[in-house]
Every structure is written in structure tokens, then in C-alpha cells.
Design a protein around this nucleic acid. Structure first.
Length: 569
RNA sequence: GGGCUAUUGGCGCAGUCAGGUAGCGCAACCGGCUCUUAACCGGCAGGUCGGGGGUUCGAUUCCCUCAUAGCCCGCCA
């Protein structure tokens, strides 16, 4: 008998989780809010969200958490943060410094950027609960774990050595062993200056590591490496923080995490995921989560780097494209593969998505069986809201691109009517309200602007050309350009006059009829080359010699506006 | 040094895990709508699937090896 292979890579993870035979599934993800959080993080969050949906549909109770690690120290800041602010707050946890934008008035730096991400979840159809690390560390249950870690310092050291030493060369190995001598897994946030670490003049980072631990009194001593403050404080003081490699498994144990995806940097041999799992098992007596490694998401051909200002946030994405497309992009791609998010390829994503819908809603078996199964599995997971019995009605993206570029001369209501007549969807209101349509147009317009920027910044002329060929870009200037009008010859001006009269005399004008009329005017009435006639019309409307196919273009424009524009008197 | 991924027509990518006639989009080319065009439509063409070896009746797919590119292993996911 043939073994049944899963239709989708997600199902392999599902199997691993199911094998654990637990009643309640806990999924988690984490991120440090050190600046604008870019869209790459949604890869792990969406993998979890898809898992959540699968397990919920099978009757499991599922908890999904996002740990917002705002107790991590600021080692450096992104360039868009003011220098004075950087100087003042370097070394503090992100929860302990104010919002860097004065007018904003939110409660902390960490909150500002963390919330920027969290606020997009609803639009992406993500259901997860944010847990702010600074709040978690104030809870007794977390503080109990800190105690356990302190009591197991030697065991923790042993495990860290086991994993980390093989990855180090001789020099680094000595430094590492030296560092471990007086090492403890806990750091303190200074009561005086709020810093948790200090960057020395030589660039070395010195954390406020706990110096000693009195198990009976449950007290630790620390000395702030930034301001020199020394104190002995309770394990329950709420200003202690576990070292990163220990912090992670502690959360796993505390929340009994069943599965947590992690970027490939953490998943490398000897990395924090491996040490975390063993720490979790031996120190906290919990098996640890199912490990899911994933590759970076890149923006075009570049890595997104907060420090280099290549930041593309989920919020920004929502301004220009459909969140379902993003879910699709993540969920169709095996987690270990690179994804290059290309703004200019959004029409292709759109095409693929429509194809998915076609296959999902078709009963026939035209496609290979595997592909059908894959799509039947994936498509519902990409939806933001519940999905329909019938294939949803869509306005072709090309039409939206077109309409979005003539918004300065055609209002929303008329655009809506045009869309209705062009697509032939009579009951458009049922699936896309005029309000939704407005949102679609606005989003498309933003996208068009982004693509224009991309083209401007592209230095490779070949690439530039190929992007331009894919997308019909134009702009309708508010007024005639006087120089252009002067450049037109008598024939061209007469031609436009004749065309204008034709439009004036005919009520509803069909795209093909207009197209034909232009040729007739040029060839028969005026004995000129049609090309000259076309150019003249483009010049008057767009200020350029080229543009979209004229018949359909003119028929989409508002008649009164067109008559006014063609009036050269 | 260790690891991950990629290499498929001009360009961007599917397909590879589960071996059995190589796909999509764009571009190109030809044609249609009395019409050079970019909301169109139809058609045609284009690839020894990075190189080499192996397994197999059969390999883009599995194994080995080499090459090239990108990334990770310093708290950027």
C-alpha cells in the first residue's frame, strides 16, 4: 500500500504536534521591538496562525502567543532615532525608555513599535495574544522560574559549554570560558539609571549580571556597570531579567509551548534553539516545543535590515496590497526557502491567487491531483474572513490600476459604475460595496506610486525597462501644457475637433467605435497618418505621446471632462 | 570552519520531498478586432532543468561530487 503523503508542508508540522497527544496546543512567537518591525516577522506569526486554524478546526483548544520582548536591552538604535535620545537611553530595556516620538505620547519605546505591529493583526486575519515581557517578569510565576535558573547555574553553564564551545575557535573559546567563570543567568535593571547593560568605550558590552545569589534569603546582588549603583534585591523585585538563551526556554516551560517557529539564525547547530531545548528539559523539566525553522523573507534582492533602513512594515504592506496575497505567499512556500517579496510583482501574486480560487471552486479535475490537494488545503488558510460557497467576484487588477490613475478626473461613484460595466458584474454591490471599492482604489494608487518610486531608483536600465513594461503607468495632468498645444499641427487640431464633435453628438460611446472613429477621421476625413492623430490625443490628455489603448481609455473617461479637455479653443 | 537555500526558455518563478511525455506570468514573434499601442482576444516559438559521476527499464526529481550565488552561525526573524 502507498503511504499517504501530506498535501502540504504544514501538515508535517501538524503531525509532529499531534504525536504529542496533548489536549491543549500552545503556539508561540517572539520579537524584540527595537524599531519598526519589518514584515518578515509575519512569516512565523502566519505559520502559527495557520496551525491555529488547522487545530481549532479539529476541535483542539489552541493558545497563540506573541512574546513582545521589550525587556531586551537597546544595544544600538536604528538611524531614524534622534542621536540625543540614543545617547540617553542606550543600554536600557525598550520598556524602560519613553516613546521616541514626542507627539505620540504612548507609554514606551517598546510599546510604540510593538503596537505598530500588533495593530495590523486584525487586517491580516491573525489571532494571537501579545505578552509584554516587562509585564511577564513582574509576575510571580516567572520569578519562580528565575529562582530555579539561579539554583541551576552550574547545570546551565555546563549545557551552554556543551553547545557553544564546538562552534568557537581557540581564541574565542578562552574568552568564553573566562567569561563563564563568574557568570550567572540573570541580569538586573538598575534602580537608579534603568540600564541593564553598558557599552564600554572600547565597544564591549557589559551586562548588569547578578554577582551572587543567596538561596536562603532569596536575594541577589548586582552592581550597575553604567552608573556603579550597588544593591542587594529580592528575586521577586521585578527588575531581574534572564539571559536570552535561558529566557527563551523558561517561557517554553512556563507556557508549555507546543510549537514555536524560529528564524534560521536561532536554529543553527549550537544556536539558541538547541541549547534552549536542552535547558528546557534538564532545568525546567519540560520537553520543549516542536522546532520549525524558517528562512528570511527578503525585499526584492536585499535582506531587510533594520540597521540599514531597509524596513518594510506590515502596516506599509497593508497600504499597498491585499493581506490575503501575503498570507498566500507565506503559506504556499516551504519555510526553509527564501521568499523575495517584490512590490512590482504583486500583479503576479494576484494572478496566482485567482488561479488558486479557480481551482478551489472548480469541481473538475483538470489540474494534477497533488496541486489540487495543495490548493484546497492552502486556500482557506489564506482567507481573512470566512470564505464563500462561490468564487468571490474580483475586479481585475489591471482595471484597478487603470482607474486608480484617473482619480483626479473621475470620482469614486463613476469609477464604480465603470468597473461594473466593464466587468459585466451587475450585482457588484453584493460582493464589493462602493466603500470597499474606494479602499481598493486607494490601495492600488499607493501601490502604483511605490512602483514609480522603484522605477526611479532602479539603476539597471534593463530592469527598469522590464518593470515599466509590466505595468501601465500614466498620469493625467490637470491642465494642457501650452507648449504641447503649440506643437500640434493644423491637421491634428482639426482631428481633435472632429473627434470632440463625434463624442458630443453620441450619448454612450463604445470603446471600439471610438477607436474606429479615430482611424476614420485620420485616414478619410483628413488624409493623415493615424499615428499622428493618436499622438495628438495622447498629448492633449496625458502630455505624452503614448498611453493606454485609446478607444477603451476614452470610453472610460468622464464625458464632460473629456469634452472640456478636447476643447482647444 | 560549520550550516541552510538556490542554480529550470530573454527576465521573474512553479514543479523536485512521493522518479514515468517540462509548466506559469511577463517579454519576443505572428495574427484578429476596418486599428502599431498598455482593461483586449487568438496563435506560434523558445529549455540537453549549473557541470560530472552513480542508482534505475527510466532521473529536472534519489545518492555522491564539483562549481557558482545568496544567507545564517556576533540578541536583525
Amino acid at each position: 500500500m502507498n503511504k499517504k503523503f501530506p498535501a502540504h508542508w504544514l501538515e508535517e508540522i501538524v503531525d509532529k504536534i499531534s504525536e504529542r497527544n496533548v489536549k491543549k496546543i500552545t503556539l508561540s512567537t517572539g520579537k524584540t521591538p527595537s524599531g519598526h518591525i519589518h514584515i518578515g516577522i509575519l512569516r512565523e506569526i502566519l505559520i502559527c496562525d495557520a496551525l491555529r486554524r488547522v487545530f481549532e478546526s479539529r476541535g483542539y483548544k489552541v493558545d497563540s502567543f506573541l512574546f513582545m520582548d521589550d525587556l531586551d536591552a537597546a544595544k544600538r538604535f536604528p538611524e531614524y532615532i534622534e542621536k540625543d535620545f540614543q545617547k540617553e537611553h542606550l543600554g536600557k530595556p525598550f520598556a524602560y525608555m519613553p516613546c521616541p516620538f514626542k507627539e505620540c505620547g504612548c507609554e514606551s519605546y517598546g510599546h510604540h513599535f510593538g503596537y505598530e505591529l500588533i495593530s495590523t493583526f486584525e487586517s491580516f486575519g491573525i489571532k494571537t495574544k501579545a505578552i509584554w515581557t516587562h509585564e511577564l517578569y513582574r509576575e510571580k510565576k516567572m520569578q519562580e522560574k528565575i529562582k530555579i535558573a539561579l539554583e541551576n547555574t552550574d547545570l546551565i553553564k555546563e549545557i551552554l559549554k556543551k553547545y557553544i564551545i564546538p562552534t568557537l575557535d581557540k581564541n574565542k573559546k578562552e574568552l568564553f570560558l573566562d567569561m563563564l567563570q563568574n557568570w550567572m543567568p540573570v541580569m538586573a535593571i538598575c534602580e537608579k539609571c534603568s540600564k541593564i547593560q553598558y557599552r564600554d568605550n572600547d565597544g564591549a558590552i557589559k551586562p548588569n549580571r547578578v554577582l551572587k545569589y543567596d538561596e536562603k534569603k532569596e536575594i541577589v546582588a548586582y552592581k550597575c556597570s553604567a552608573c556603579g549603583n550597588y544593591n542587594e534585591i529580592s528575586v521577586y523585585s521585578g527588575i531581574l531579567k534572564l539571559n536570552w538563551r535561558v529566557d527563551w526556554p523558561t517561557k517554553w516551560a512556563l507556557f508549555q509551548t507546543t510549537c514555536e517557529p524560529a528564524g534560521k539564525d536561532h536554529c543553527v547547530k549550537g544556536g539558541s534553539y538547541d541549547t534552549g531545548l536542552e535547558l528546557c528539559q534538564r532545568v525546567f523539566n519540560y520537553k520543549g516545543p516542536v522546532k520549525v525553522a524558517y528562512e528570511w523573507l527578503r525585499l526584492g534582492d536585499r535582506d531587510m535590515k533594520t540597521s540599514k533602513g531597509i524596513v518594510f512594515t506590515p502596516k506599509k504592506y497593508l497600504e499597498i496590497a491585499d493581506p490575503e496575497l501575503y498570507r498566500m505567499l507565506i503559506l504556499r512556500t516551504n519555510p526553509m526557502k527564501h521568499i523575495s517579496l517584490r512590490i512590482e510583482e504583486i500583479p503576479q501574486y494576484y494572478d496566482y491567487y485567482e488561479r488558486m480560487e479557480d481551482i478551489y471552486y472548480s469541481s473538475g479535475k483538470i489540474e494534477p491531483e497533488e496541486e489540487q490537494e495543495f490548493i484546497r488545503y492552502t486556500y482557506p488558510l489564506t482567507k481573512i474572513d470566512e470564505f464563500l460557497d462561490k468564487k468571490p467576484k474580483r475586479i481585475p487588477l489591471k482595471l484597478l490600476i487603470f482607474l486608480s490613475q484617473i482619480q483626479n478626473i473621475l470620482n469614486i461613484e463613476d469609477s464604480y459604475e465603470k468597473a461594473k460595466s466593464v466587468t459585466g458584474i451587475e450585482d457588484l454591490e453584493k460582493s464589493i460595496s462602493i466603500k470597499d471599492f474606494g479602499i481598493l482604489l486607494k490601495r492600488t494608487k499607493k501601490w502604483v506610486e511605490e512602483v514609480k518610486k522603484l522605477i526611479e531608483n532602479e539603476t539597471d536600465s534593463q530592469l527598469k525597462k522590464s518593470i515599466m513594461q509590466k505595468i501601465s503607468l500614466f498620469e493625467i495632468p490637470d491642465k494642457h501644457d501650452e507648449d504641447i498645444l503649440k506643437s500640434l499641427d493644423k491637421n491634428q487640431i482639426n482631428g481633435i475637433k472632429l473627434l470632440r464633435n463625434f463624442i458630443l453628438e453620441n450619448d454612450a460611446v463604445d470603446a471600439d467605435i471610438i477607436q474606429n472613429k479615430i482611424f476614420t477621421i485620420a485616414k478619410e476625413d483628413l488624409k493623415m497618418k493615424p499615428k499622428k492623430m493618436f499622438e495628438a490625443i495622447y498629448q492633449v490628455i496625458l502630455g505624452k505621446k503614448h498611453g493606454p489603448r485609446l478607444g477603451s481609455f476614452l470610453s472610460l473617461l468622464d464625458k464632460n471632462w473629456l469634452l472640456e479637455r478636447l476643447n482647444l479653443e
